[in-house]
Design a protein around this nucleic acid. Sequence first.
RNA 1: UGGGGGAUCGUCUAGCGGUAGGACGCCGGCCUUUGGAGCCGGCUACCUAGGUUCGAUUCCUAGUCCCCCAGCCA
Length: 564
Amino acid sequence: MSEPSSASNFIREIVAADHAAGKHGGRVVTRFPPEPNGYIHIGHAKSICLNFGLANGTLGGACHLRFDDTNPTTEDPEYVQAIQEDVRWLGFDWQGKMFFASDYFAQLHEFAVRLIQKGLAYVDTLTADEMRTYRGTLTEPGKNSPSRNRSLDDNLDLFRRMKAGEFADGTHTLRAKIDMASPNINLRDPVLYRIRHVPHYRTGSAWCLYPSYDYAHPLSDALEGITHSICTLEFEDHRPLYEWVVEQADAPHQPQQIEFARLNLTYTVMSKRKLLELVNKKLVTGWDDPRLPTIKGLRRRGYTPESIRAFCDHIGVAKREATVEMQLLEHFIREDLNKRAPRVMAVLRPLKVILDNYPEGQSEELEAINNPEDPAAGSRQVPFSRVLYIEQDDFREDPPKQFFRLAPGREVRLRYAYIIKCISMTKDPQTGEITALHCTYDPATMSGAAQAQRKVKATIHWVSADHGAKAEVRLYHPLLTTDLAKVPQDQDWTAYLNPTSLERITGCLVEPSLRHTTSGARHQFERLGYFCTDIDSTAEALVFNRIVPLKDAWAKIEKAQPSK
RNA sequence: UGGGGGAUCGUCUAGCGGUAGGACGCCGGCCUUUGGAGCCGGCUACCUAGGUUCGAUUCCUAGUCCCCCAGCCA
């Protein structure tokens, strides 16, 4: 597995230069600041790898995990728990540096009082609608609120009463006094505190006013001694506000905000709002639905943390908007699993094969290599007998050009076993569907035997009918039928959900060694792909998720062929 | 037509005045008891127009296009 390349990027360069110059006292402290209002996804993984990577690469560096829990109406401890699990599962350790913005509520409040005393904040009684009107537009300056020149004492008193719970939600806000005419709308007296008579999952009912992101975030960073506060592009024009807050509140330390482009992936959704919608509307089975790009989803699907880290290391960090092709993610899980996943044989869509010249009632154990990429993985025994199942796709009654597999009169090798020849087939008289193949096997061609050198064009996988275990296999296809960036905002994006994103195949047959597989185990089903035993799987009812198919040269050839 | 950002192969990304490189993808070939893996070769890019310079993807000027901002969300 390719280890973190620590490929350079503009942020790494800035941090390295600062570190070398002894800025921030030579320290490098970053943070991953999720809001606990949803599960994290691979876009967050990019940020996690960046932030932890930056800190880990520096002597004495640290990366904090900080929950940005300033909005109790949407946040939930379930998410706090899940996010911790996911960060840990990805392979990162915050070394005890786990914090909550809510830890700072008292200090944040003190900073607010100071801002009021400095004449830099005021209590406003405008309603939300009025405030919007007063804010102006992108091209017109805003107007000062009538509350803007309240006396210092009035402000202090009103703010005290806000905190004491004397006012209803929405009636008062604390606003920064900056510039209602600023061309940067974020500087038009942004709201610092709003009233919410809602209990907070951590602070209970201690507070009925909660700080806004623009106020809490920079001060939380400052309080923790964050040196480089890395966030996504949409916060770029909040930076002047970020700096204003830290400066004017006389915070102990000035962190540096740096923005980068968030990750987008083709044919999937990467917005918390949309993911929540999928979960709430039960359009997916949950946050861990294997079709989702959530960490929990990827994990259940069978992705390894190593593959996700390798992916994040290779996509780079820059400021231009980018949408990475899903194939790149798939590349990294294939690369990882090719080296470590044991091979087994499984037939997804079984076609019965009867070896007419193989003695009835007889069976033998054949040796099969566990992983040709890893000699240490050893080998196992696979039972062989007269009646087998092969993949329906591996037989064609009327084979097209370049089809090397089984067809009437043709020969093929059974993996780790004999060469067989198709003699005849039986069909369902009603439907015409092929129900079984009659073949003969050549005993001299046992895999590895001296006379086994005869060349055949294909080797196919199989499972012995009497020995195989039944299984359900779940195949996953892209969540969306289009790139959402192309869908107009006012359109219902769920119309572009792929109706066949989940394909459940029952009646699959897997080799007996898989009977005792445990959930989370990953195997390569030879010639098919990499599969992960699902948590739904039991000894009686095996369930596998396809993580990613193997590259399929034949599928490409077939697709390129003129349809006959 | 306010402000803030961004434009390099199909997709990501490097470049920091000196032959535009890598990865994925795609196309060939070799090899193969997985049409997998591996190996070899090829493919295609500097938004436009001027300027500075011996030399510009890089610096300057003027355009063009794309993204973000008018939540008491983050």
